[in-house]
């Protein structure tokens, strides 16, 4: 297994290179630069050129990319051009809130999604199944940016149950977690349902039931474990959405996280921050997926590590 992990980590290097290179080239090709905002609606080509030089943005693109890689390899992600702050500092300050938010959303999604999925599968095509799946889909057919203000209006302004915005205490967490968790919940519920349905129809489960084991026992002993595998993969994959897709939620509920930071840095063309954020997300994504695959192997020893990518 150590060899497997080593191999996977080695394979992560080209992935990271690809991510940073794509980010860099797309960022470089898009017109406008962080310098332009600094000039404040002024046409001052001289100052612009000087600042480009000061920030090293006048160097050939490949040199800039090389410089970024060289520094990143030694743990230096550079400095935000807009905010004149170390990128690593921004990450350290703002990542915890996002991680917390994403963690709670995943926990919520797993809890609600798994239970809804299992119940639905056991009640296949009966009322409860239809109802749960309908409810789950309804929650995701509204865009986040509508759901969030709507909930805010109801729970904050009309009912007064929750504080309006901020990230100071548990009551602050309720709405952002609910909104961010809605889509993964729906996903997991549906995935779990179809996965359970399939497992329930496998011969060994049928045999177990036929042998007289209680259905509940079968579900929790055998079916659940096997049905859980694809859900695990999906959880790993939706992490990317939770980390950067949280920008709408972070903006509306004033969560000081990186979701907002990354979108904002793109709008400002703050290259070092864009690079740093995508690198961070990529690293987390790779680590989480590696963990998922290892867990996969533990849950289901039939999966040989070499085969998984």
């Amino acid at each position: 297994m150590v060899a497997y992990i080593r191999k996977r980590l080695l394979l992560a290097i080209p992935t990271l290179l690809a991510v940073t290179f794509i980010t860099f080239s797309v960022g470089y090709l898009a017109p406008g630069s962080p310098i332009d905002a600094k000039l404040k609606e002024r046409n001052d080509p001289e100052t612009r050129a000087r600042l480009m030089r000061e920030y090293g943005l006048d160097r050939p693109p490949l040199v800039q990319y090389g410089d970024f890689l060289w520094k990143a390899a030694r743990g230096d992600l550079g400095t935000s051009i807009t905010f004149d702050r170390k990128v690593s500092e921004i990450v350290l300050q703002q990542f915890p809130a996002t991680a917390q938010l994403a963690g709670m959303a995943i926990a919520l999604a797993s809890l609600l999604g798994l239970s809804a999925g299992i119940v639905s599968a056991l009640q296949h095509n009966r009322f409860l199944d239809r109802f749960l799946m309908g409810a789950v889909l309804l929650a995701v057919s509204l865009p986040t940016f509508v759901l969030a203000p709507l909930l805010m209006l109801v729970f904050v302004l009309w009912l007064g149950w929750l504080p309006p915005s901020g990230w100071d205490g548990p009551l602050n967490y309720v709405l952002p977690v609910l909104v961010l968790g809605a889509r993964p919940t729906a996903l997991i519920a549906r995935l779990m349902r179809s996965s359970m349905l399939e497992v329930l129809r496998q011969d060994y489960i049928r045999t177990a039931v036929a042998k007289g084991l209680s259905p509940a026992r079968v579900v929790f002993r055998h079916a659940l474990k096997n049905a859980f595998l694809p859900v695990l993969t999906a959880l790993g994959n939706s992490l990317g959405y939770l980390l950067t897709g949280s920008f709408v939620v972070e903006t509306i509920f004033r969560v000081p996280g990186i979701g907002f930071e990354s979108v904002d840095s793109i709008m400002r063309r703050d290259y070092p921050v864009i690079q740093g954020m995508s690198l961070l997300v990529a690293v987390i994504f790779i680590l989480v997926n590696l963990t998922v695959d290892i867990l996969y192997g533990i849950v289901d020893p039939r999966v040989r590590f070499e085969e998984a990518r």
Binding site: A18, V26, G27, A30, G240, T244, I266, S278, V281
Partner: peptide, 16 residues
């Protein structure tokens, strides 16, 4: 490449 695309912040791409 697929891994990289997965690990990539979607919106960044769209905006740029």
């Amino acid at each position: 490449i697929t891994d990289a695309m997965f690990a990539f912040p979607d919106l960044l791409f769209a905006i740029l």
